[in-house]
């Protein structure tokens, strides 16, 4: 994947917010699903919400999409309160659903063309079909598609209206690794167009590959928020230096891995056997955060 241009201070989109959430709360009966969430998602950003099942991810996103009401808090999505959705506002959003199973008897082309009629300024249906890689299946009934192909139709329907903001709810669940990689490239190309993307996932590699910023939701609250590389103090965390010596694997946790490696290099007088230097993975940080929230 081609790296996207990083944000800079003079970047105008830096100051423009696509999604702004303050103190969002939602209960189902006695259960607190979301308990005071703040979020700021910038225009043009790919933002991932991570969290275990039942943490409040879907509830949060469905409130932003205008599907659910909220109990408290301020929410603005593209400048509109999603609690009072309008057609004009909906035309600027693209929602890629998690478990739709509809329109089985229509062909891919018929479906994409049909959804194009809903929007004031849709993309070209054939271009969209090509973009999601379904040209060869354009004439097939949706019933005949594989799960992964069906998700591509979902994405096609999500982007046909030329949205400024796309919601992707766990888009690659059930994909094989190759399909996932291709899907990531698709999302990446949308991000290149300047579309803001809000993604929920429980795959950490997905968040790391796609997202400019990540928020971890646990027990209805944001446990941490930041760039994947620095989330939860990941960049500052101790590095682990490991090597083989006298047939035994040795490890050292250190704030100064370079110095350790230099010392080892002197000691071995050259190549250090089986040398690795690792920082905590996003997964390590994530599990710490989620468990921390559970034990609070």
């Amino acid at each position: 994947m081609v790296p996207r241009r990083p944000y800079t201070d003079d970047d105008r989109s830096m100051t423009q917010t696509a999604v702004k959430v303050r103190g969002l709360a939602k209960r189902y009966g006695d259960v607190r699903a979301v308990g005071g969430i703040d979020l700021d998602i910038r225009q043009g950003e790919v933002f991932a919400i991570l969290g275990p099942n039942g943490a409040g991810k879907s509830t949060t996103v469905e409130i932003l999409e205008g599907y659910r009401t909220r109990d408290a808090g301020e929410v603005s999505v593209l400048g509109t309160d999603p609690g009072r959705p309008t057609r004009a506002w909906r035309a600027r959003l693209g929602i890629v659903l998690q478990t739709a199973n509809d329109a089985a008897e229509l062909t891919v082309r018929e479906t994409v063309r049909h959804f194009a009629t809903y929007y004031p300024d849709p993309r070209d249906p054939d271009e969209v079909i090509a973009r999601v890689g379904l040209e060869e299946k354009a004439g097939s009934r949706i019933r005949q598609l594989s799960g992964g192909q069906r998700r591509r139709v979902d994405v096609a329907l999500g982007i046909i209206g030329r949205p400024e903001l796309i919601f992707l709810d766990e888009p690659t669940t059930g994909f094989d690794p190759e399909a996932r990689r291709r899907f990531w490239e698709l999302i990446d190309s949308l991000a290149h167009d300047g579309t803001t993307i809000l993604l929920t996932t429980h795959y950490l590699d997905e968040a790391e590959a796609l997202a400019d910023r990540v928020a971890v939701i646990a027990r209805g609250r944001i446990a941490a928020e930041g760039e994947p590389a620095t989330l939860g103090g990941r960049a500052a965390a101790k590095a682990t230096v490991a090597w083989a010596e006298d047939g035994v694997r040795r490890t050292v946790k250190t704030d100064e891995p370079t110095r350790t490696v230099a010392e080892l290099s002197r000691r071995f007088d050259g190549e250090i056997p089986e040398l690795t230097v690792t920082r905590p993975t996003l997964e390590d940080i994530y599990l710490d955060l989620v468990q921390g929230a559970t034990h609070e």
Binding site: R12, S13, T15, Q16, T17, A18, K20, Q43, G44, S76, L78, G79, P120, D121, R162, P163, E164, D193, G194, T195
Partner: peptide, 16 residues
Amino acid sequence: MSESTTAAVTADTARR
């Protein structure tokens, strides 16, 4: 958030 801060869009997503 005021309406104006969210109004601008990038070239590719701008309405034609």
